[in-house]
């Protein structure tokens, strides 16, 4: 599977900026979040995160933007994030298109991270439970489709986080089936402190890549074998409750 990441930095201003109050508050909070792990676990990664956290807290308290600019937090930075990945599946485009458009498929593929409620043929409600605090939820509609080629979904323009998803199908060479690409454009600009959230999100960009990768791998498995590989009810000496809670948020990471 190939993947790439574009953080949309074209035209980014290098001029020194002074942060607004909201940006500064979020910067301080982000810094504190990065600083926290070192209090629990004194590993190299934790110390590195703590150093970044300390720098962000300094930025937030002082109103300066030295670190913020490096991370793309300043006012001149873009507030969008684009991620895409591809996978080759040994089925023809028509079969994959039909499977992707089956409402059950979306529900199954997103089950590890989000609860999907089918509100209509081209309309869903989604909810992402978080480890702490209330779930994040919203609605999405299909805005364009070209059978056997492309489907484009978008979240409702309700003033919050704006997410666009494109599902592309292209023939693979050597009779290997179809190249499937999943592309997301996330627009943070309508959120309070959107640039900070985008920058923090790009700082942890492995997480969305892993989610998209897992969706594509599972879609491929479903298309080629009729089932998704799973560790559900996997026997171990760990308690079943502990396994389920962990699996939802870390994809069974160690």
């Amino acid at each position: 599977m190939s993947n790439s990441f574009t953080n949309g930095r074209n035209g980014r201003s290098r001029a020194a900026q002074r942060s607004g109050t909201t940006e500064r508050a979020i910067t301080i909070a982000s810094g504190a979040l990065l600083l926290a792990p070192v209090l629990r676990k004194r590993s190299i990664i934790a110390w590195t995160a703590a150093a970044a956290g300390g720098a962000l807290i300094y930025d937030g308290v002082s109103g300066a933007c030295a670190v913020s600019q490096k991370l793309g937090l300043s006012a001149g930075s873009p507030a969008t994030q684009r991620i895409h990945q591809s996978i080759t599946i040994g089925k023809d485009a028509a079969e994959l298109y039909a499977l992707w458009r089956n409402p059950d498929t979306m529900t199954r593929l997103m089950r590890p991270w989000a609860d999907i409620d089918i509100a209509g043929q081209n309309h869903i409600r989604w909810s992402v439970p978080l480890p702490i605090g209330p779930a994040v939820s919203g609605e999405a509609v299909m805005v364009e489709e070209r059978p056997n080629e492309m489907v484009h979904w978008s979240t409702m323009p309700d003033g919050g986080l704006q997410i666009n998803e494109w599902f592309h199908l292209n023939p693979a060479p050597q009779n290997r089936g179809t190249e499937v690409t999943l592309e997301y454009l996330v627009d943070f600009s309508r959120l309070q402190g959107g640039r900070t959230i985008r920058a923090i999100s790009s700082f942890f960009d492995k997480a969305p890549h892993m989610v998209i990768g897992k969706v594509l791998h599972n879609f491929k498995a479903l298309a080629e074998t009729g089932e998704i590989p799973t560790l559900e009810r996997n026997s171990s000496a760990r308690s079943q409750n502990e396994s389920q809670v962990n699996n939802r948020w870390r994809g069974d990471l160690v």
């Binding site: 080759t88 040994g90 990768g213 791998h217 498995a221 590989p229 990471l253």
Partner: peptide, 28 residues
């Protein structure tokens, strides 16, 4: 664990099966 359906299984490269690692994203 091999699926028997993917390109790798069909080409007798069984341990490279595409469809049986639930933690593919961890190994990639």
């Amino acid at each position: 664990v091999c699926c028997g359906s993917c390109w790798y299984c069909k080409h007798d490269l069984w341990s490279l099966c595409d469809n049986t690692n639930p933690n593919a994203n961890l190994q990639e």
